[in-house]
Design a protein around this nucleic acid. Structure first.
Lengths: 152, 152
DNA sequence: TTGAATAATTAGTTTCGCTAACTAAATTGT
DNA sequence: ACAATTTAGTTAGCGAAACTAATTATTCAA
């Protein structure tokens, strides 16, 4: 495995890049996966919560779609978040089937604190990179996000 | 997000980038997990197998380290791979505590096929990007890999 | 030679995601 | 208007993945 982070326009075959990106993502998440005992908030919870904090209230279905999980999975995530007082559910009066979910103030605080804590190990390592490398990673994150959804 | 790696030093705060990278990785892997269920080999298995195929035989402990999981986790992965005939275990004659693991021929074939299947959805989407965007992602993958391990 | 260290395994727990089947509410078609 | 269909969400249950703690087997060192 030779390093081609700085190679001059390599033959960037989509499949090879896909494979590396896949592999890199697995290893990155394993680094961050460990449970956050202090806050008790796991990565998927934090992720859903941050959608609510930054994107405002959503229906359960919208949240499931945003997080790319099935509705039953999101039902469970929301139930746990509610039990911890981090989100609130309300019924939509126009359509009583839908469940509206929004972050509580505590949810907002916990999300911000938990995120900082969870991401600290990574941020620490990023701080050691050159600034152009960090910029590259930021651009890449946006691209990956776009690719993971349907390139919208 | 039109700027590249050579953008004029944006305020690339490490923590913000860490958060986005984290989020992007979660979503990317969720996308790929679904595709993967169509085949018999799961992502962690494939990942470990590819270490063996590309890196040659390893001890169980080395494999655990390479994959950033604990030894018990790797024990289970290897047991499953062995049950499927994809790897073989052998005792090291110099030190009878260690378990040497190597991919079988079938393991090699299955790994390559599985990887192609797994990565197809991603590669398809990558193919729609500009070539400089793909190159950026490739460089990012290498960087992420470096960061996820201890920046060596 | 006995005791500490190392490699791997076993046992048990937790979290997460899925599918299938269900309830409840809204919409549609006759 | 009311039966049939569609839509939103929930419940129940399965399987995969990862962890910690404790155990076994082997090696190394005092």
């Amino acid at each position: 495995m030779t390093n081609d982070a700085d190679a001059p326009t390599p033959p960037a075959d989509a499949e090879r890049v896909a494979d590396r990106l896949h592999s890199a993502s697995i290893h990155l998440l394993r680094l961050l996966r460990r449970r956050d005992d202090e806050g008790g908030v796991t990565a998927p919870h934090l992720s859903a919560l941050s959608v609510l904090v930054f994107g405002g209230a959503k229906t359960l279905g919208e949240l499931a779609a945003a997080e790319q999980v099935t509705p039953p999975s999101m039902t469970r995530i929301v139930r746990n978040l509610e039990a911890d007082g981090l989100v609130e559910r309300g019924t939509d009066f126009a359509d009583r089937r839908v469940v509206r979910v929004r972050a509580t103030e505590e949810g907002r605080r916990v999300m911000l604190a938990g995120r900082a804590r969870r991401v600290a190990a990574l941020a620490e390592r990023l701080a050691k990179l050159e600034s152009d490398e960090v910029a590259l990673l930021e651009a890449a994150a946006a691209l990956i996000e776009r690719v993971a959804r349907g390139n919208p």
